[in-house]
Design a protein around this nucleic acid. Structure first.
Lengths: 214, 214
DNA sequence: GTGTTTGGATAGTGGCACTTACCAAGGAGG
DNA sequence: CCTCCTTGGTAAGTGCCACTATCCAAACAC
């Protein structure tokens, strides 16, 4: 498959594919001669993953490169490989540790993990970007003067745990380690927008049920 | 409160506040004379909401302006007001209706809503951005060659429905209509990153439980 | 052999979230 | 009164980023 065909089958312009090649998001094709390179189904697959990450997941190009680097790193064990890929994903601003809301959010998040009995996650609080994102969101919520009982957060966490179990079950069905890591990334990048969409659809549905269309 | 104090209390630079005022994200202060304007707690509150939307929710400035316009529109009924605000939020690429994966995703999403009995949401499929986002994510997933049984999606939707019910319960505790709409926006913008963070933390926890840290 | 296609390099584009530099009007101190 | 600092407002600039347009020389197609 030539670059032009890769472009046609993926719906991505040739110029953009060249850009991805330059940026290292796509491995180079098999060079046939100075003016021809051959691409295969694996390139198409990777290109689609890259597009999904950038367009659906809104992941910056530099981050995509980093994530895929971990996905392709055969030297890592599974948890580390998947973890490294997922940890490279988030684009969370560093919380300002001097802010009182941020410190309160830290305490709240720690209490939550303790109550849930998520001991492994609890050990990773200093380094996990997901934990940082939780803290930032909690702090912003409180800063707006909103409050809710801790129980609600626990219930939400349990819901997401169920979703995560399903994702890992799905990941386990993939044959190779690299594909498992790739499936984990796809889960993070595509399942989350899906959940977000379902959340808003559910809000629309329930809102219409409660109040009608007015 | 002067602009400088508003800046200090919010942690947002004076230049940025001026920029938000110019862009209509923040209502102008009470003009005392040509060189002095007075801001109040409501401005601080709104500024924090704007920051949360932009920094935590990654909402573009133009979109924030549009969303807040709906939140402040007293002429709308509650469902419409909340709906208008939430519908202005997403930044979803238009799905390419000629793509076979997109058409399949449409069928899948419609079937899902039917199975769930979400009749109100079903009526809105042509216009709801959340529906479009679901279709785009589903299509991307299938394009990657991934598949799962329809039951999994139904289960996920039911999880998100539970979360949405809790959000609306919370929204109902707000006193005024404008604050209800604001709470709905905060739910969408802050709860969703929170759920995402919990999802990834749950993945980390369950992954470590299954495979250890290796 | 002539026109088209190929992959690769370089520079440019447009959007966006700020930021900097500047301005005239007020107020404070002398 | 004059001087100097502060204030809010405006216009232009910055830096980043995801492309995209333009070239180019080397194959290939007929």
């Amino acid at each position: 498959m030539r670059l032009a065909q890769l472009s046609e089958r993926s719906g991505v312009s040739a110029a953009t594919i060249k850009y991805y090649l330059r940026e290292g998001l796509l491995p180079p094709g098999r060079q046939v001669n100075t003016t021809t390179a051959e691409y295969d189904e694996e390139h198409l697959r990777r290109l689609r993953l890259v597009r999904a990450m950038i367009q659906v997941g809104r992941i910056p190009v530099a981050t995509v490169r980093e994530v895929l680097g971990h996905v392709d790193d055969d030297s890592l064990g599974r948890t580390i490989r998947v973890g490294a890929a997922l940890w490279a994903l988030p684009q969370v601003p560093e919380p300002d540790e001097d802010d009182e809301y941020v410190r309160a959010a830290h305490r709240e998040a720690d209490t939550l993990l303790d109550e849930l009995g998520w001991e492994n996650a609890r050990q990773l609080t200093t380094i996990s970007p997901a934990y940082r994102q939780l803290v930032v969101a909690l702090a912003a919520f409180r800063r707006l003067g909103y409050d809710w009982d801790a129980e609600l957060l626990v219930r939400r966490a349990k819901l997401m745990y169920q979703a995560a179990v399903a994702d890992l079950d799905f990941m386990d069905t993939r044959p190779s380690e690299a594909e498992k890591a790739e499936a984990a990334v796809a889960s993070a990048v595509l399942v989350e927008p899906m959940l977000q969409a379902l959340h808003r659809l559910a809000q629309e549905e329930e809102s219409a049920r409660r109040y009608g269309f007015e």
